[in-house]
Amino acid sequence: MTVLVAGASGATGSKLVEQLVQKDYRVRVMVRSPEKLPNSWKNNVNIQIISASILELSDEELKNYTQNCDAVVSCLGHNLTWKGVYGQPRKLVTEATQRLCNAIKKNNSKQSVKFILMNTTGNRNRDINEPISFAQKLVIGLLRLILPPHVDNEKAADYLRTQIGQNNKSIEWVAVRPDNLINEDKVSEYEIYPSPIRSAIFNSGQTSRINVGHFMASLVSNDTFWNNWRGQMPVIYNTSSLTK
Rank of each mutant, 00 (worst) to 15 (best):
N123Q: 15
N180G: 01
P194Q: 10
N44K: 03
V151W: 10
V45R: 13
L181N: 03
R209N: 01
R198V: 14
L76A: 08
I210G: 01
L160N: 10
E60T: 13
N107K: 03
V45F: 07
L181I: 12
Q19H: 13
P89A: 07
F115N: 08
L138Y: 07
R28Q: 06
S240H: 08
Q232M: 15
L80S: 12
T239K: 15
S74D: 04
G122L: 14
V17I: 08
N46R: 15
V85N: 02
T224C: 05
R209Y: 07
E184F: 00
N107V: 04
N123A: 13
K186V: 08
I132C: 06
S170A: 15
E184I: 06
A6Q: 04
S133D: 03
L80Q: 14
S204T: 14
Y237S: 03
Q163H: 04
N102Q: 11
D127R: 12
Q166I: 12
V174Y: 02
L76S: 02
F202H: 11
I201R: 13
E35H: 08
G84I: 13
P38T: 12
A6Y: 02
S170Y: 10
D152P: 00
V235R: 05
F115R: 11
N64C: 00
V220S: 06
N211G: 06
S218H: 12
C69I: 03
P89C: 01
T12C: 11
V3G: 02
R99T: 11
A52W: 07
L57R: 11
S74W: 08
D179L: 02
S170Q: 11
F134H: 09
A71G: 03
S74G: 04
N123S: 14
G84N: 08
E130K: 00
W226H: 04
F115I: 09
R28T: 03
N238I: 09
Y159L: 07
P131I: 13
I210S: 05
R28H: 06
L37E: 03
R28K: 10
G165I: 09
M118V: 15
S112T: 12
H150G: 02
I201H: 11
G213I: 09
N102L: 10
V45K: 14
H78R: 00
R230M: 12
C101T: 14
N153M: 13
S241I: 08
K42H: 01
V212N: 00
S240L: 11
I197P: 00
N43Y: 02
E191W: 01
K36E: 12
N123E: 13
G205F: 09
